[in-house]
């Protein structure tokens, strides 16, 4: 990987996502911002996918189980050329191909539909099993939220993954420490996710979810030691000035002015860090 290239990709994705949400006037900014760097690494350096052939059977799959953060994934897919960036401005409009929650039937590059939290990991296991049974190549990456891991179905899936030594699937936890109603530590403490996954029989890694090199290193290590999970330590709302706040940022009304300021700040920070 090239650090600068991936950081630039992350900045572009962040800016497109802010533009997209501003065009709608509102949206799931917090959880979208926390995964922009992870998506940038996945789509720049990890995933074997082809925007011109998004359904290629032996592709790598990316399932965004925290489906409400579709806007970040749509920005990524537009950035990669799956569809025109202008389409991002149609988010949530009637008849759009970009609904608030990921829909595989509507958006090129969306592998599976998500939105009812807790279901993406099982879908990913099914794809991984389907590939194995049919001798089809490609891996599966599933992004789950830390709050989302409160849903019991995840732990059914984790038990299955461990018992069956699923070797072509990586669990990615967006550990942004917050959920809709507040901080996970106040609503339902997560304790130590690394220790939890390890106790279930999963190789667990931790990464700084906003450091593209660390993300890359841990995802690469995880993909080589499946069954594996990478706990990405992230900040909800990260990288967007108006959403980097301790208060409610799950879902925000976004004005043109807020978007312009935030986008300028993304550019400024990128320049400073390159």
């Amino acid at each position: 990987m090239d650090r600068k290239t991936t950081m630039k990709a992350a900045a572009e994705i962040r800016k497109l996502c802010i533009e997209e949400l501003a065009a709608a006037g509102y949206g799931h900014i917090g959880g979208s911002m926390s995964i922009c760097d992870i998506l940038a690494v996945l789509y720049t350096d990890i995933l074997d996918t082809d925007p011109k052939d998004p359904r290629r059977p032996d592709r790598d799959y990316l399932i965004l189980s925290k489906g409400h953060c579709g806007p970040a994934l749509y920005a990524t897919l537009a950035y990669k050329g799956y569809f025109d960036v202008e389409e991002l401005k149609t988010l949530n409009r009637g008849g759009t191909s970009l609904p608030s929650h990921c829909d595989r039937l509507k958006t090129p590059g969306i592998d599976l539909s998500t939105g009812s939290l807790g279901q993406g990991l099982s879908l990913g296991v099914g794809v991984a099993m389907g590939k194995k049974i049919q001798g089809v190549g490609g891996r599966v990456f599933v992004i789950v939220g830390d709050g989302e891991l409160q849903e019991g179905q995840n732990w059914e899936a984790v038990q299955f993954i461990a018992h069956n030594s699923i070797s072509n699937l990586v669990i990615i936890v967006d550990n942004n420490k917050r959920q809709l109603d507040g901080y996970t530590k106040d609503i339902c403490r997560t304790f130590d996710y690394k220790a939890k996954f390890e106790s279930f029989g999963i190789h667990a890694f931790e990464a700084n979810g906003h450091d593209v090199c660390d993300i890359y290193d841990k995802l690469t290590a995880a993909a080589g030691t499946c069954p594996a999970a990478v706990i990405m330590n992230t900040e909800k709302g990260h990288g967007c000035s108006f959403s980097e706040i301790p208060g409610f940022n799950h879902y925000m009304v976004i004005s043109r002015e807020m978007a312009d300021q935030a986008i300028a700040e993304v550019d400024r920070r990128l320049e400073a860090s390159l």
């Binding site: 389907g130 899936a157 038990q159 299955f160």
Partner: peptide
């Protein structure tokens, strides 16, 4: 034997996994 999967007592996962498998053509 290669086409039989006993998940254990986890119906929600088993259905979701079935959905994922069907995405690959099974």
């Amino acid at each position: 034997p290669g086409r039989s999967i006993n998940c254990g007592i986890m119906e929600a996962h088993a259905v979701g996994m079935s959905a994922g498998m069907s995405e690959t053509g099974l």
